[in-house]
Simulated assay, not measured.
Amino acid sequence: MDKEAALRALAALGQDTRLEVFRLLVRTGTGGLPAGDIAARLDIVQNTMSAHLKVLDHAGLVSAEREGRSIRYAPDMTGFRDLLAYLMEDCCNGAPELCQPIIQAVTCKC
C-alpha cells in the first residue's frame, strides 16, 4: 500500500457512519450484508448509505458484489491488512519482534 491509498482508507474510516459500517461488516464476516440491511441495522437512509459504501469501496476497505437488484458488501480483509501493514511497516525502530503481540491480536482467522 502506498501513502495515497493509506490516506484514502484512513479518511474513509475517519467519518462516524463509515467507521460504524466497516465495524458492522467486519463483525458480519466475509459473507457481508446487502446494502439495504446495512442501512436498516444502522438506521440510515439508503441513498446516504450508498454514498458511504462507495467511499469505503473506493478506499479498498469493502468489496461489492451485485445480487440481482441489490449489492452485497463485505469487508475487504486484504485491504484492511494492507492498511495495518502500512501503518506498522517501520514498527519498533527495526525490531519487529516487539510488535508481534499487536500483529497476533489483529490477525484475522477468517
Rank of each mutant, 00 (worst) to 15 (best):
S70H: 05
T48C: 09
Q46H: 14
Q100E: 15
G32H: 05
G94D: 10
F80T: 14
R66K: 11
L56R: 01
L56H: 01
T48N: 12
D16V: 14
G14S: 09
G14K: 02
C108Q: 14
A105C: 08
A59G: 06
A9H: 02
R27I: 08
A105V: 07
Q46Y: 12
V55Y: 00
D37W: 00
Q100A: 15
G32R: 00
L24S: 03
S63C: 09
L13D: 03
G31P: 01
A39M: 03
V62S: 05
M88G: 12
L7M: 09
D82N: 11
L25M: 01
N93M: 13
L53H: 01
I102L: 15
P34H: 07
R66W: 00
D37A: 10
G32K: 01
P34T: 09
F22I: 03
G29A: 05
D57S: 15
L7W: 04
H58Q: 13
A40Q: 09
C110A: 14
A40F: 07
T78I: 12
L84I: 08
G68M: 00
I102R: 13
L98H: 09
A85L: 04
E20L: 12
N47I: 13
T107C: 10
I103W: 10
A64G: 09
L53F: 03
A85R: 06
T48E: 10
E89V: 06
A51P: 04
K109E: 15
E89F: 06
P101L: 03
S63A: 12
P101E: 06
S70Q: 08
C91E: 13
V62C: 07
E67C: 11
A95T: 15
Q46I: 12
Q104P: 05
R66I: 10
L7C: 04
L61Q: 02
C99F: 07
R41W: 04
L83K: 01
D90N: 14
M49I: 07
S63R: 11
Y86N: 01
A64S: 10
P75R: 09
I103R: 14
G60S: 02
M49Y: 05
A9L: 04
L53M: 11
L98F: 11
E97P: 05
S50G: 13
E97F: 09
Q104C: 11
D37N: 05
T78V: 12
Q46C: 09
A5H: 05
G31L: 03
L61H: 00
D2I: 11
T17M: 02
V62Q: 00
E89R: 10
L25A: 06
K109H: 13
G31I: 03
G31S: 04
V45Y: 08
L61A: 06
S63L: 10
K3L: 13
K3E: 13
V106T: 13
F22H: 12
L84A: 12
G14F: 03
L13P: 02
D82I: 07
E65P: 08
A64Q: 08
A85D: 09
C108F: 10
K109T: 15
A85I: 06
A35L: 10
